[in-house]
Amino acid sequence: MMEYIAGHYNYWLIIIIMMAGFYTVISRGNLVKKIAGLNIFQVSVFLLYISISNVKDGAVPIIEEGVTLYSNPLPHVLILTAIVVGVATTALGLALVIRIKEAYGTIEEDDIHNQDQSL
C-alpha cells in the first residue's frame, strides 16, 4: 500500500495542485485570484504531461552514441503549446479584469453582481 502511494507520488502532487487551483477558481470572489487559480490548475496539467513523458532509466532525448533508451520528448513539445495557450489566456483574462475595474470600479464578483442587479 505504502509502495503504491510512494510509487505514484507524481500523480498525488499533480492532483493536489490541480484541486488547489480548481478550488481557488470556484471559491474566490476576486477576479485576479480566480485567474491565478486557473493558472495553477493549468500548471498541474503541464506537470501531468511532463511526468508521463519520463521513461524509466531513459536518457535525455538528445541523440548520443551508445544510448538506446530515451525519454519521450513529444509531451514536452505538446505542453510547450499548452503553455503558450495558458499565457495567452492569462493575458486576456487580466486584460478583461482591467476593463472590468474601469467599468465597475471593483474586481470583487459580489460587488459587480450587486451593481448589475441594482440597475
Binding site: 486557473l38 493549468q42 496539467v45 489566456t89 486576456l92 478583461l96 472590468i100 459587480i112
Partner: peptide, 19 residues
C-alpha cells in the same frame, strides 16, 4: 459593461473545459 463580465465568465468556464 456586462459584456466584460460575460466574457470573463466564459473565459473561466471555457478554459476549465479546454483544460
Amino acid at each position: 459593461r456586462q459584456a466584460l463580465t460575460a466574457s470573463y465568465q466564459y473565459l473561466i468556464m471555457g478554459t476549465i473545459g479546454a483544460t
